[in-house]
Design a protein around this nucleic acid. Sequence first.
DNA 1: CCAGCGATCGCCT
DNA 2: GGCGATCGCTGGA
Length: 205
Amino acid sequence: MKLPFSYYQNPDVIFLAKDLLGKVLFTEIEGETTAGIIVETEAYFGAHDKASHAYGNRRTDRTETLYSEGGISYVYLCYGIHHLFNIVTSVKDEPHAVLVRAVEPLIGKEVMEARRKMPFTKPAISAGPGSAAKALGIDRTFNKKDLTGEEIWLEDHGIRYPENQIAAVPRVGVAYAQEDAFLPWRFFVKGNKYVSKPNKFDPQD
DNA sequence: CCAGCGATCGCCT
DNA sequence: GGCGATCGCTGGA
């Protein structure tokens, strides 16, 4: 059930971003297990993507994690407040990654409610990358973790969404990436209430 | 060494 | 819908 290390080695980060919808993201922190179904992702196409921290093969202390082999987590602080969780994919030195933007609470809902101070019936509990990470208890200490380990991992529960239920639209908050800002590399489950706000519904529907 | 800013969120109007 | 919070990373001095 736990996704094997090989799953993350796939060189096609766009495929993986879409394939990760429906997979279940787990954390175990101080004996408390929480998990959510991934319902929204964004692909970041490494060195060739102006929206990526690793654009142009930029290497700094922060981006070094992105050059790990697939199956490692990349967590960083955004706006001084929010922790954003990414899944590093592909082979070593190919800095591809998938940002998890929203999850649907599945296991440990009470724990998530305490972390977020709101009932799990409120979509805001885990809609949006900062909220999803907080609900699952993910912070900076989760950077560079093995995603097949005992603290954070993913499972395949056989959840599959038909093609026509998945929207592919431009990514959020990457206007600075110029022409790359228009690439349809944000994927989400249409109509799922835990999907983050911007363009919750496919404009074509 | 330090000023500017970000893959956001929640509160206020 | 508008805006302030808040801090590590980044690149230029």
